[in-house]
Amino acid sequence: MAGPTSAAKKKKGTASTVKKAPKRPKSVREPKKPKSAKSTEANSTAAEDASDEDDESDNGPYCLCRGPDDHRWMICCERCEDWFHGECVHIAKDVGESLIEKFICPNCTTDNLMTLYKKTCTLGSCRKAARLNHSPPSVFCSDEHAQTWWERMLARLPKAKARAALSDELSQEEFMALLSSDLATIDGDGSWTLRAPFSGQKSEMNGDEIGIEERLAQILTEEEKDYLAKKAHARFKLAEETLLCQKMITLVELVQDRRRAAINAGLFAEDICGYDQRLDTICARDAFAAFVKSPEGEAIFQASKVGDPLGEGDEVRGMCERKRCKIHSGWHKMLVQAVKYQIKELADQAAEVGEDERILREAAEERWRRRQAEQNWVEVLDG
């Protein structure tokens, strides 16, 4: 005979006038305690009622399959507030947690009501959301991915010698020249900012200012011209070294992309190191420059992809397969930070060279103005 507690319990499938959100089942259920031979009948009834309520919460029904919460990843519908297994609605966990703004289940989806997705990061291999609501907004999920995107775009530009004749496409050297000009700045973290020429206020240059370079060419001594030529050559070398450092960061990110691809394919666990021996030349400028010019290096930067070092298509060959490797611990972050520090040092050196040039030019200009003033003097002679 059922007691009053059993009679008051809601039967499964019974309709309700006010629909309540289903309880999210507990992730871990405690095992039932064995009944004691000396327990009273009242205690046994209370334990059974509590067990029934727990079973009802754990066993659902949920999702399209109307099954239980079997500890698979689930997502809640914003309209009916029911829970759905990600596999049943064809949504991966990383997409559901990072890229879905508002989930609407298939039962509630209409022409005017559907799942809303966030814009993904512009970097192709990234599955995170872009920072469109930040100030300033960005189509990337982080500054590091913005930097990586620019580096890959630069790597796709042809070199001056390899560019076809009469082509409007910028070469790598021309682009680096833009970065070295007063139109571009390199921040301390290595990110680039390029200002559009002739933007902002209208130029206030007059005829005298237009002829500054011509006047400097006339009044500069041979020693000063040689000094400026050496400074210009030094700035070009610093720009080349900066480009080399950018390629270092690109190689580190490509190796990290290969590691992530192996993890997503189930070939690696999350705690596998993934360090590639081709990263040994990072921060060693001469050795890395030689690697970049080698056939393997040229193939990597042309394809923007790191593969099997033997060229046989093996997806993990060449990577460290140790778990929680102590030798290469934190290699990705450590190498990127080291290269960015080098970029900052190069930027500081380029700023010093530019300042030396500016001081010499201003001194030459001041000297020219003094000569112009001396020529305007008039000596009055008594008749």
Rank of each mutant, 00 (worst) to 15 (best):
M74Y: 02
K326V: 08
I219P: 05
T281E: 12
P197A: 13
D52P: 03
L310H: 05
H90P: 04
D276I: 00
G86R: 00
S6F: 08
A290P: 00
S39P: 01
D69G: 15
V18Q: 13
P197R: 07
Y62D: 06
A92W: 04
C325G: 09
L179I: 14
R259W: 13
L310T: 07
C245M: 04
Q201R: 06
D94R: 14
K119Q: 15
S191N: 13
G86N: 02
S6D: 05
S199C: 10
A290K: 05
L381Q: 11
A261I: 05
A303D: 06
E270G: 03
L170C: 09
E224I: 03
I219W: 08
S98E: 12
H332A: 07
L220N: 04
T148H: 11
L243R: 06
G96Q: 05
Q172D: 02
N264L: 11
K118N: 07
F140A: 01
A2T: 14
K305A: 12
V316P: 00
C141W: 01
N107G: 10
D189K: 14
H90Q: 15
R195Y: 05
Y227Q: 12
S6N: 07
D54Y: 10
D54K: 08
V89D: 03
E345C: 12
P158H: 00
E48P: 01
K202S: 12
D280L: 04
G3S: 14
L381M: 12
V306I: 13
D143V: 06
R127L: 02
E151G: 13
L228C: 05
E214F: 12
K237W: 02
T122R: 08
V28L: 13
W331Y: 14
A217H: 11
E241L: 04
L99G: 09
S294W: 00
C76N: 06
K23I: 11
S6G: 11
N59Y: 06
F291L: 00
A350Y: 01
C88E: 13
